[in-house]
Amino acid sequence: MSDQVGTPDAADGLTEESLAEGDAVSEGAMSERALPDSELVAQLVSSFEGITYDIRSYASSDATYTMLYVPVADWVAFATMARDIGFDTFIDLAAVDHFRDAPRFEVALNLLSMDTNERIVASTRVPYDHPVVPTLTGVFAGANFYEREAYDLIGIEFPGHPDLTRILLPDDWEGHPLRKDFAVGAIPVEFKAGSSDL
């Protein structure tokens, strides 16, 4: 009841600078630990500096997946390596607006290895004043539409993308509706009486 999500007022007077004192990375659950059991994930974690990981399990299932945090500088190199060592199925790319946390935007990449039945969800964070993540279209063809969706709805730029245009909304749309400072856009519905001149 207390959150003001979607109301235009929530964003008023709040600049990114005033919010910058928040936690550097909100994923407190992720922590640096010994290398995981999975060989593939261990290979990834040991190859890049600054990667943190966390193993989760599905609800009502024995299946697990690994959540990773990757610095944005290593984003493409990480995805390329992940693809080459076996995470060769592109599943998903999601963008999140962590409105009150300092690196405001998150991009989460979901990759799957069908051979070893392992899954990783790797995310990176970029700040509000520079929402730029290098494109993965050179690594996975499937990143094309997903990055366009992230650009359209959250407003993250993917330099190097071959066709970075709006995908879901009309071309002349202004703003990025899934940002938290974009109002839901609910309007009071007028229920009209049936007109009598038909």
Binding site: P177, F182, V184, G185, A186, V189, F191
Partner: peptide, 22 residues
């Protein structure tokens, strides 16, 4: 007819804003 449960930025809130409905 009215936008239904999706009263948000993406939907036209009732097609009668676009065409006359009988």
């Amino acid at each position: 007819s009215s936008g239904g449960m999706f009263n948000n930025y993406a939907l036209v809130q009732g097609v009668d804003q676009v065409v006359p409905v009988d």
